[in-house]
Computed example of a mutant assay.
Amino acid sequence: MDRQPGRSVRFKLTLSYAGFLMLAGVLLLTAVYVFLLRTYPSWMLIRQVLLRGFGPAVAAVLVFLLLFGLLGGWILAGRMLAPLDRITQATRTAAAGSLSHRIRMPGRRDEFRELADSFDMMLAQLEAHVAEQQRFAANASHELRTPLAISKTLIDVARADPNHDSGELVDRLHTINTRAVDLTEALLLLSRVNQRSFTREHLDLSLVAEEAAETLHPLAEKHGVALETSGDIAPTTGSPALLLQLTTNLVHNAIVHNLAQRGTVWVHTGVRRETAVLTVENTGEQLTPQLVATLTEPFQRGTERIHTDQAGSGLGLAIVKTITKTHDGTLTLIPRPAGGLRITVELPAASEGEPPRLSSSG
């Protein structure tokens, strides 16, 4: 924003200090004058004589106070505004693209130091966010380039060998293209969710869990995984479509990352204090806390999937994390001692007396 140049804050503070000092001097001299009039009425007889000497002295005192106020005010204002100057320089450095700079204001806590600490915290969060976005862009580019490179290789091989089975080529290209489309749709969903462009409605997480479980029940049967749902009514507010996507991703992930035979997935809903809780738990391989801590990062797939026909985009739990965050909730991942994972989503509970809405996949 273009602004007209104005006087500096230091100059304004200097004038304020000098003006206040002059005003205090005038009030003090006036008080002395009034005090003498009231205490010594006879002083009026010699007032003219005294004023001849007192007047120049008063003028000299006021001039001294003015000069002293300007000089002292300029110095004091500079010392007071020195921390603000450091903050301004740090802001310009950050605006130039350097997010690693920190103010690190010394001294005890005051308003300027709280502002500097808040600015340092903001820079740290912004630097981490930019780094995360750069990693995300690099990973997304790699993930999108991989199916394109494979498709190009298959086409080149087919062109070099006219007798190659075209049916097999079409099937493989269809599979690769499907994965690329799924990845693109997942990226678009992440973008829309981050914009928080959705309308909040009242709904029941237990109904959402039942709908997700019903949708994925054939997939669980196909892979020999038992899918169990239980729990109580869990009213909350949010986007029915996004919360259904969240639940579906969790249940799908629990089915895919499971034992080869006789695996189980448990889906439970309930209310805990002032939150609606959704818990998805599954059997599976042993997971370390270090590995679990990375599973919500984009394109982190954890252990190898048992069912190779469900390769996924690597964005399932990243989408869950983003949807949870945009609904002001918390996401917790804990490895099970017996193997597998327990994922808990806590969302703000809806107020009493507000009817829940049946979720809709549309």
Rank of each mutant, 00 (worst) to 15 (best):
G238L: 04
P218K: 05
F198K: 02
Q89N: 03
I306L: 08
L126V: 03
N253Q: 09
I46P: 03
V345R: 06
G97H: 08
L23T: 14
R305P: 00
Y17C: 08
T279R: 11
N253E: 11
G270F: 00
S191V: 02
H257F: 15
G353W: 06
A186E: 03
E297D: 15
I87W: 00
L67F: 12
L205A: 08
R172I: 03
R3M: 11
P41L: 12
E210K: 14
R7N: 01
S313F: 10
L66A: 10
R104W: 00
R159K: 05
H257N: 15
F136K: 03
E114D: 10
R145K: 12
V130D: 12
V58W: 11
V9Y: 06
D171Q: 15
P356Y: 09
A160H: 14
V267E: 04
E168I: 10
P56F: 09
V32A: 14
T326L: 07
P356A: 11
R305Y: 01
E297Y: 11
L76M: 07
M22I: 14
M121T: 10
T344L: 10
I255C: 13
S359M: 05
P335A: 07
L126I: 04
S360V: 05
N282L: 01
A124K: 13
K321M: 00
R109M: 07
T247N: 12
T303I: 02
E168A: 13
V265P: 01
E111Y: 01
V58Q: 15
H257E: 13
R108A: 14
R305I: 03
M122K: 04
R10P: 02
L227H: 05
L70F: 06
L50A: 15
N177S: 13
P298S: 09
R342Q: 10
H174M: 08
T88V: 04
L27N: 04
T269H: 04
L27C: 11
A95L: 15
I343P: 04
R10S: 09
N258C: 07
R273S: 08
G238Q: 03
Q261I: 11
I46R: 14
R357G: 11
L62C: 05
T344Q: 15
A116L: 00
R102K: 12
L50H: 15
T215N: 06
L154F: 05
R108I: 02
E132W: 13
L144M: 10
G339S: 01
A90F: 00
L244W: 09
T237R: 04
E304K: 14
D328E: 13
T283E: 11
T322H: 02
I343D: 04
I255T: 13
G97M: 03
A350C: 09
E228G: 04
